[in-house]
Design a protein around this nucleic acid. Sequence first.
DNA 1: ATTAAATACGTGTATATACATCTAAATACT
DNA 2: AGTATTTAGATGTATATACACGTATTTAAT
Lengths: 151, 151
Amino acid sequence: MKLEQAIKSTKFKNETQKAALNVLYTAWWLKTYMSKGLKEFGLTHEQYNVLRILKGKYPEQICVRDIACRMIEKNSNVPRIVDRLEIKKLVKRTTSQLDKRETVITLTHTGILLLEASTNSIDQTMEAVTVLSELEAVQLNKLLEKLRSSE
Amino acid sequence: MKLEQAIKSTKFKNETQKAALNVLYTAWWLKTYMSKGLKEFGLTHEQYNVLRILKGKYPEQICVRDIACRMIEKNSNVPRIVDRLEIKKLVKRTTSQLDKRETVITLTHTGILLLEASTNSIDQTMEAVTVLSELEAVQLNKLLEKLRSSE
DNA sequence: ATTAAATACGTGTATATACATCTAAATACT
DNA sequence: AGTATTTAGATGTATATACACGTATTTAAT
């Protein structure tokens, strides 16, 4: 669906403003598909992101701060997300002995199994809905990084 | 900043998966700038979106459902956002006489003034941070719509 | 060595997101 | 007409987002 139909508006200041809105809308669109796919595993978008980050470093341990700076949405309240993963026994918290301020998070066996099952399912879903050739994806990545280059 | 630095990860399944993550990250990045700019006006991202939609139709009236389907994030709880705008006296609620189920939302004078001031400020901020030529923006819009074309 | 500053993370609050449920009103069905 | 279904929107719940603040621990400064 064209952006114009999606948000029922045709009045954009210029193509750049439209592009910004288009990025916001597309992100919402992607998140919606992901959340739907994750539902059968009882995971939210953010919980899944944390599990993926833990998997990426496994079996190396990782503290809350390291998780936070790897999150897509940097303002995520990682302690609280970990709370929920801990209740479901998908991760374990331990105080680091090297630095007692740090809380080290570890994937449990249950966590690994759930992550494996959900990753396969989500990757398939996302591949099915994200219609881009490899070349187009490269182009899109370039343009998004150009957009953010003021930072 | 490159996506790899932003989320401290270099392991992507393919360029398409990276593009999806890049869209999500860029959306977060844009929202952050917008929220910062809106703060001085005491508005959130979503409250601003509702005000913009009301302005787009002004002085024509518009009901809650019509606002909802124009929102960028379709799951927005519009009645609750309107609650907050009403408390700040930026909008007014009236029950439609044609269909008493409908609640019609109108911008107040205060609302119009605040919207004008904030729009100028935000448009400037967004233009400053969103670095794209008109041509690049056209390309980006095309690629995002291609990405979503499975829908 | 003692105090000051910085860091890690937990917690609190307001709002948003996602989704389910409830109520009133409008429409459709027989 | 009388009942069923649909629609609009308010409301409830769990989690997330954004941000401020508190506490314990570590590092730096004097």
